[in-house]
């Protein structure tokens, strides 16, 4: 890994310090074509939802914590010199940190009960973004800047749980369930951002991504406590609806597939 980083850094320094006459050819070759990129980074929430229920806060805020993302697929088709359309898929894996926290919380809330889990829902993906929109290009010295504006959807994971609580020294049992109630699983999302790309090889570059995401998520947690003997239920609702804002930073690689081969041959 160190060797790869060393080669990339050396290559970047070499390219930056060398006036290469072939540069112009390569720049024009990157006008029209397909820009494919992949990267990894961090998503940082700019606002966090909170109610006064610690159990649901743990389950929901886990979706909003600082998290690693992976942009596995991103392709921009530059059909004009300075304009292209981009399609992007980005996801963040979920680590399940909320589960032991919720477990402790239940133990604190119900000290006179034995607890068991009849059900636990846990999605592997914490958050996914599927975006589509416009991308443009600005060349600044040896650096390319790709500003973009995309729209699409955000899908948040479903974290749900149910506990069976058996009273100590008693036949009484309860089931407490924490159900996520989402009216729109796919939240309409805006994304504005830009990438700084430096091509250290002919078609291969390193990118630094800066993105802002905004979406409205309508969601609440419904806590139902069922007395399993009488089947009486009590319900509480904790609302987490609101506008969510995220900032993300990423680093990765770009690859440009040029559609201007004929020009190169003429040159």
């Amino acid at each position: 890994m160190k060797t790869v980083i060393f080669i990339i850094v050396c290559s970047v320094i070499y390219q930056l310090t060398t006036q290469n006459c072939e540069g112009a050819v390569r720049d024009s070759a990157r006008d029209i074509g397909l820009l494919v990129r992949t990267n990894i980074g961090f998503i940082m929430p700019m606002n966090k939802s909170q109610t006064y229920n610690r159990a649901t806060d743990l389950m929901y805020n886990n979706l909003e914590d600082y998290v690693t993302f992976f942009r596995i697929f991103d392709a921009t088709l530059f059909f004009y010199k300075y304009l292209g359309v981009e399609l992007s898929w980005k996801f963040s894996p979920q680590n399940g940190d909320w589960k032991p926290g919720l477990d402790n919380e239940i133990s604190t809330m119900y000290p006179d009960f034995y607890k068991d889990y009849p059900s636990l829902t846990f999605d592997d993906m914490k958050q996914q973004n599927i975006m589509f929109g416009l991308n443009s290009k600005i060349k600044l010295a040896n650096i390319f800047i790709y500003p973009r504006f995309l729209v699409g959807g955000t899908v948040l994971a479903e974290n749900e749980a149910a506990y069976e609580l058996k009273a100590k020294n008693s036949n009484q049992t309860y089931v407490v369930s924490y159900l996520q109630n989402t009216s729109n699983k796919f939240s309409f999302t805006y994304n504005a951002g830009f990438s700084l790309v430096y091509f250290f090889l002919n078609n291969v570059g390193v990118n630094f991504d800066f993105d802002y995401y905004q979406f409205y998520n309508k969601m609440n947690y419904e806590i139902t406590n069922t007395n399993m003997v009488t089947m009486e239920k009590t319900k509480e609702i904790f609302n987490y609806s609101g506008t969510k804002r995220y900032f993300s930073i990423g680093i990765g690689l770009n690859y440009f597939v040029s559609f201007q081969r004929s020009k190169k041959k003429v040159k």
């Binding site: 009849p118 059900s119 829902t121 149910a162 069976e164 089931v175 369930s177 159900l179």
Partner: peptide
């Protein structure tokens, strides 16, 4: 029996009913 609220959940298990 199973918790009715979680009938669609693959991880469901049965709970005591009376």
């Amino acid at each position: 029996s199973e918790v009715p609220e979680f009938a669609s959940n693959v991880n469901r298990r049965s709970v005591r009913t009376y």
